[in-house]
Amino acid sequence: MDTTQPAGEDLVKHFPNAKEDSHTLAYRFNETGEGLCYYSSGRVAMAVSNVGDHQKRFYVYDDDKDKTMLCSLNELAVGFAINNTRKHSNRGARLVLTKGGGVYSNGEGTIQSEWKWDRKAQNAGVIPASGIVMPLNKNFKLAFEDRFMISITYEVEGIIRHFDCGLKLKRMDSYLDTATRNNLGRLEITSSDYRTLNQRQTDFALSMTALRNKNNPKSENLSSMVNAIVGDLESHFDTYDSDKRSLPSLHLHAAKVDAFNTTCSELPKIKRTDTDIHFEGGYSSALYLDSKSASTYKFSAKDTARPILLKPDGTWKSDVEIRLALMTLEHPPLPKPTHIKRSNGHYSYNHNARPIKKRVGETLRSASTVKEKGELSEMLKGRLGDMGSFIDSLKNR
């Protein structure tokens, strides 16, 4: 029984009938198969670690202070195993596995079997037909048939667990096993499971249809319950860009022309003389006057200036006066809403702030109904004098 991949309650096991002062944990594994096995003494007996999604490494230790390693097998079924069982007739037997083959020797060091994995190689040797079964110690046993059939059995105080330590490959066969040669001598793959790159791309696109429909659902991929509703939405919104966004919403050219004409209308005109250079285009038609218009045009700056720049007596306003006129006449602030007027005063520093009204009526002192008495004043003066004398006497102590 292979229990390399534990599940459910088989992830953790404790020793039965353990004493209170003893170690009760027999083994602990996670869902991927990694974990540790323990002896009843609490020492680590076996460690299993993951290399990939289907390959593991196995390490077995003896129950001694030196933690002697009894077996080590990696993901390629390369490693060793040694029989270290006390009072065993074949103690010292070894099994060594490499990438090329394997060697098995008895307790005296004599090689019993030697072989290569490539059965067609020269002097390939033979794996024992009955396999190799050797104890590692009194709690572990290794069974070997070939590099794909290797198992280790853990047995401590009645708890038994089997581990499949053989070589694990994603693909056990080769394309060449089923390939055939055509008339030209070229190998052709005949596997029915072979799929081309285009077919795999098509399969991937179909598998992603459900995920794509979450972001951009299409009526053709939906059920009959909602495809009619989604179809009506598609007929309305699919042409939105061409129907609505194709027309320009801002007339930038007309806006530039209006801004240019407004600017030129605010500038004073200039009379052309014989020494002026003749300009074509640009500001020439906007700034210069012809001879007929110049005869009736007033070239005084005050006559062409905006009224906001001049005082009533015809003199120029100062910079502060111009800025104040712009803020109050041409760009007045909006009236303050009622909810801002009632706020805590952060918004009250402007021309809409309420002026401070002078208090009208009697003050608190003049409105008081209590009349002062001379006896009360004299009594207070006396007590203040007594307190001063007492303080002076304390200072002179």
Rank of each mutant, 00 (worst) to 15 (best):
residue 357 K to C: 13
residue 389 S to P: 04
residue 346 H to C: 15
residue 380 L to I: 15
residue 349 Y to M: 13
residue 344 N to W: 05
residue 366 S to W: 03
residue 376 L to C: 14
residue 358 K to Q: 13
residue 369 T to P: 01
residue 367 A to T: 06
residue 376 L to H: 10
residue 354 R to S: 10
residue 374 G to W: 03
residue 376 L to Q: 11
residue 379 M to P: 08
residue 355 P to K: 05
residue 350 N to D: 15
residue 361 G to T: 00
residue 348 S to M: 12
residue 355 P to H: 08
residue 344 N to P: 00
residue 352 N to W: 14
residue 362 E to S: 06
residue 389 S to K: 00
residue 379 M to H: 09
residue 351 H to N: 10
residue 348 S to I: 13
residue 382 G to H: 12
residue 358 K to H: 09
residue 368 S to M: 08
residue 386 D to Y: 04
residue 365 R to G: 14
residue 381 K to F: 14
residue 384 L to H: 07
residue 345 G to I: 03
residue 354 R to G: 11
residue 382 G to D: 14
residue 376 L to T: 15
residue 388 G to N: 00
residue 359 R to Y: 02
residue 370 V to R: 02
residue 373 K to A: 03
residue 366 S to R: 00
residue 358 K to S: 11
residue 358 K to T: 15
residue 345 G to K: 00
residue 365 R to K: 02
residue 384 L to E: 10
residue 345 G to V: 03
residue 379 M to E: 15
residue 364 L to D: 11
residue 372 E to D: 08
residue 362 E to T: 04
residue 361 G to F: 01
residue 364 L to H: 06
residue 385 G to A: 15
residue 355 P to N: 14
residue 363 T to M: 01
residue 370 V to Y: 02
residue 387 M to C: 08
residue 378 E to H: 12
residue 369 T to W: 02
residue 360 V to K: 01
residue 355 P to S: 15
residue 369 T to G: 07
residue 388 G to D: 07
residue 384 L to W: 07
residue 382 G to T: 12
residue 375 E to M: 03
residue 373 K to Y: 04
residue 349 Y to F: 14
residue 386 D to S: 01
